[in-house]
């Protein structure tokens, strides 16, 4: 079984729950921050994800600030991303509208490489305040070649899914690359 390494950039508007999602994933659900702390710099987290019977992926997660004031300066830390996770808040239409802008931003660092992504609609435990329709988000994800996940970073069993998707997509790029090389020989 092979161990892949990937740089995972997590972006989205401020206060959509990027850091919560990252920390819950990193700690296997042990750490949910109840108080909001705005991320000002990029926080780097490391976590391995196992895709059963195919591969392990070691993710270096770059939890980036959503507030514009800090975002610009932090882009330089990303380097060349391998995968991206774009997060919005299902109770905030504006955070969904911003997603295209975030994707553009990440893409400008990708040197034209294929970089798999997931769209995450967070805070789905607050569905009574929902402003973004699931179907609409799913359509957006499809047009960008992304997978769509709705999560509540608060709930066990949901925050892993986006990262598992990314690990699977990154592994299939690896397989494709091996296939391409063998065809060249």
């Amino acid at each position: 079984m092979v161990k892949l390494r990937a740089r995972c950039v997590v972006v989205g508007d401020a206060a959509v729950g990027k850091s919560s999602l990252c920390h819950m994933f990193r700690s296997d659900g042990a750490v949910f921050q109840k108080n909001y702390n705005m991320t000002a710099g990029v926080e780097l987290l490391e976590k391995s994800v196992s895709v059963p019977e195919t591969s392990d992926s070691e993710f270096f997660i770059y939890d980036s600030p959503g507030r514009e004031l800090f975002a610009d300066a932090c882009e330089n830390v990303w380097g060349q991303p391998s995968v991206m996770c774009v997060v919005f808040d299902i109770t905030c239409e504006a955070s969904f509208t911003s997603c295209s802008r975030w994707v553009e931003r990440v893409r400008s660092h990708c040197n034209g490489l294929q970089v798999p992504g997931v769209l995450v609609g967070n805070k789905c435990d607050l569905s009574f305040r929902r402003e973004v329709d699931s179907a609409e988000a799913r359509t957006w994800a499809q047009t960008h070649g992304f997978q769509y996940h709705e999560t509540s970073a608060k709930e066990i069993g949901q925050f892993e899914a986006p990262f598992l998707s990314l690990a699977q997509m990154f592994h299939s790029i690896y397989q494709d690359q091996i296939h391409t090389i063998k065809n060249v020989l």
Binding site: V2, L4, R7, S82, Y174, I181
Partner: peptide, 8 residues
């Protein structure tokens, strides 16, 4: 061949 498994 040898193949890299991600990152530089």
């Amino acid at each position: 061949f040898w193949i890299s498994t991600g990152l530089f």
